[in-house]
């Protein structure tokens, strides 16, 4: 069943480049990665990048400028499979939290003033699936090494990635941590995609939600629980919004009810 190596491109839109850096940080596996696949484009790792047809495109970062939109559209045209990697790409990231257009404009003005952008025109930050069809999602902020390698290897062998959406609480309990929420600490574990190994709670720090909202999270119940524990309404909503990108829109819709 041997066929040509998969042609893969790794692209960065607007974000911290942490996800691309994580791939580069797979030091022990890097040779295997480059051997197993034909990495056509990976700006952080090499200079001889080709913008041709691709089997798989991994896209990091949110769409925040018109240049991002153009680049993303071009990637979609060239790639058979597009994978959103990381929080920004999946939900818009921290920069995507102002989901109301009016609010976004006001904030933009507050930060940049009336400055004229010559390089490219900024747009409201959105996840990539606001513009194109996305085949698979790999959550994380940044993505996890183990999940990435698992995902990458499955794709190489022609199998779709394993979908296993679980909240942070699952791994947190695997590690036999004491529940911070139960202790009255504002922890977003039950609302957040797991895979990080509950690393913050392992160190007695609450989950801030950086891997993004987990499917099926019960925001309403956690909101009322935190209220009961004495947290301020604004604080709870801000914490919940931080890493939820555009997803917070539907959540606030729920909370308004």
């Amino acid at each position: 069943m041997k066929k040509d190596k998969l042609k893969i491109g790794i692209y960065e839109l607007t974000g911290c480049a942490g996800c691309a850096l994580l791939i580069l940080d797979c030091e022990n596996e890097l040779v295997d990665i480059f051997q197993a696949a034909d990495i056509q484009s990976f700006l952080m790792a090499k200079s001889d990048n080709i913008d041709g047809e691709l089997d798989i495109a991994l896209v990091e970062g949110s769409v925040s400028t018109e240049k991002d939109i153009e680049e993303l559209m071009d990637i979609r045209k060239r790639a058979e499979i597009v994978v959103a990697i990381g929080l920004c790409s999946m939900v818009g990231g921290i920069q995507g939290r102002f989901c109301d257009e009016k609010e976004w404009k006001e904030n933009f003005k507050k930060v940049y003033g009336d400055i004229e952008m010559t390089h490219t025109k900024p747009v409201q930050s959105k996840p990539i699936d606001a513009y194109i069809k996305v085949d698979y999602y790999l959550p994380g902020c940044p993505i996890g090494k183990e999940q990435f390698l698992n995902f990458f290897t499955r794709m190489l062998r022609g199998n779709p990635p394993e979908r296993y959406p679980q909240p942070v609480c699952v791994e947190c309990k695997y590690n036999e941590n004491d529940c911070l929420l139960k202790k009255g600490i504002l922890c977003l574990g039950p609302l957040t995609s797991g895979g990080c190994g509950a690393i913050c709670i392992n160190h007695n720090l609450p989950c801030v939600g950086c891997w993004g909202p987990v499917e099926g999270g019960n925001w309403i119940s956690e909101y009322y629980l935190l209220k009961e524990k004495g947290f301020d309404d604004e604080l709870i909503k801000n914490k919940m919004a931080n890493f939820s990108g555009t997803k917070i829109a539907e959540v606030s819709e729920q909370l308004r009810k």
């Binding site: 609480c169 309990k173 039950p190 309403i220 119940s221 956690e222």
Partner: peptide, 21 residues
């Protein structure tokens, strides 16, 4: 169901829960 956080902790801490993936 309205209150449940769907975090799975009750199963993980239960001495007789046996389900696995």
């Amino acid at each position: 169901g309205d209150a449940c956080l769907a975090c799975g902790s009750c199963s993980n801490v239960c001495p007789t829960c046996n389900c696995y993936n």
